[in-house]
Amino acid sequence: GIPATNLSRVAGLEKQLAIELKVKQGAENMIQTYSNGSTKDRKLLLTAQQMLQDSKTKIDIIRMQLRRALQ
Rank of each mutant, 00 (worst) to 15 (best):
G1Y: 06
G1V: 12
I2R: 08
I2N: 10
I2V: 12
P3V: 06
P3G: 09
P3I: 06
P3K: 08
T5P: 10
T5D: 12
N6Y: 02
N6T: 05
N6Q: 07
L7A: 13
L7V: 13
S8P: 07
S8M: 08
R9T: 13
R9S: 10
A11C: 15
G12A: 15
G12P: 03
G12N: 14
L13N: 00
L13K: 00
E14M: 15
E14T: 12
E14A: 14
K15L: 11
Q16K: 10
Q16A: 11
Q16T: 03
Q16C: 12
Q16Y: 03
L17R: 00
I19F: 08
I19W: 09
E20A: 07
L21H: 02
K22N: 05
V23D: 01
K24I: 07
K24H: 06
K24N: 02
G26S: 13
G26N: 15
A27S: 02
A27R: 02
A27H: 07
E28I: 11
M30I: 06
M30T: 04
I31Y: 03
Q32T: 08
T33E: 15
Y34N: 03
S35P: 03
N36T: 10
G37Q: 06
G37N: 09
G37F: 01
S38D: 13
S38Y: 08
K40M: 08
K40P: 07
K40C: 15
D41L: 02
D41W: 09
D41V: 03
R42K: 12
R42H: 14
R42D: 15
K43Q: 10
L44T: 03
L44K: 11
L44W: 04
L44C: 11
L45N: 01
T47M: 15
T47G: 07
A48D: 00
Q49Y: 14
Q49R: 13
Q50H: 05
Q50T: 05
Q50V: 08
M51D: 03
L52F: 04
Q53D: 06
D54L: 06
D54A: 08
D54W: 04
D54T: 07
D54G: 03
S55F: 01
S55R: 01
S55W: 01
S55M: 02
T57D: 12
K58D: 01
K58Y: 02
K58H: 03
K58G: 01
I59R: 00
I59P: 00
I59W: 00
I59D: 00
I59G: 00
D60M: 12
I61E: 12
I62T: 01
R63M: 13
R63W: 08
R63N: 09
R63L: 12
R63I: 12
R63P: 00
Q65V: 03
Q65A: 10
Q65M: 11
L66V: 03
L66R: 01
L66N: 00
R67P: 01
R67L: 09
R68V: 15
R68E: 14
A69P: 02
A69I: 13
A69K: 02
A69S: 05
L70K: 13
Q71Y: 06
